[in-house]
Design a protein around this nucleic acid. Structure first.
Lengths: 137, 137
DNA sequence: TATTGTTATACTCTATAACTATA
DNA sequence: TATAGTTATAGAGTATAACAATA
């Protein structure tokens, strides 16, 4: 058997756990034709109607320039619309069709998040979210 | 202020925490001319001398095909050597220069991992690693 | 002067298929 | 028959620079 000294490094295990979870969620969203970033954006736009692409990108840590093709694809898929706020900014809204897809995605995600937490032994379970939030913010 | 409903999703926070930590470690390793994968490989090769590229890839969840350019770069940088085990397999070893670089990298990583854990409130701290390991394995 | 949206571009990481040679 | 190493290639995600138009 191979030795794995990396298992004791929190940073490494964090990366592996995130990758494993991310790959699984991507697989589960695939039948819906949605990517993780799509769902994140739909959730944030629904919670903040009229948000601009720049502000959305700042929340998700995605560069302005990289938002363009993503939002264009979502607009082409009739998931969101862009409406002029003023001559410079565009406000984002979730379409009716987008809300329906979002409802499906939420069912997938809620199930996924529940399963994720169930894998964590009970004595550690409620420490996960606050610990991770402390690492991120 | 914008609403952020994503903050309550463990999977999302996991991804953000891993990305933030990864970006920071990458920055700290950059002066050493090493990437995270380089250091992971050096650690694993040192712990398992003579390991093959395929076995190393399986441990790190990196495809065989993607190991080729990585190992070639590390060999060109005189961090590792490949020695024939038989007519098919090559055993990997860390060079003397590789060991020196690995020592520098370990100092960076140990400091980084300590700081990472210090950011987690004490009551959650020792739950992080077991919780993450449960998600991954 | 700072910000928004945009185009173009490049680099890294990752995934797949196919091939050769050997165990 | 399964495995190791390799090549080629394509798709994501991400990062930077630059520009026009507007706040």
């Amino acid at each position: 058997m191979m030795k794995d000294p990396l298992a004791s490094y929190p940073g490494y295990v964090l990366r592996r756990a995130a990758h494993a979870a991310g790959a699984e969620l991507t697989m589960r969203l695939e039948p819906l034709g949605l990517r993780q970033s799509d769902v994140s954006m739909l959730i944030l736009i629904e919670a903040n109607p009229g948000i601009t692409a720049s502000a959305l990108g700042r929340m998700l840590d995605i560069q302005r320039a990289n938002m363009v093709p993503i939002l264009k694809r979502m607009e082409d898929a009739d998931l969101i619309v862009r409406e002029a706020i003023d001559g410079k900014s565009m406000g984002l809204e979730v379409t009716r069709a987008g809300l329906a897809r979002l409802a499906d995605a939420r069912a997938v995600i809620d199930q996924f998040e529940n399963e994720l937490l169930e894998r964590v032994p009970a004595e550690h379970r409620h420490h996960l979210l606050p610990a991770l939030n402390a690492l991120w913010r």
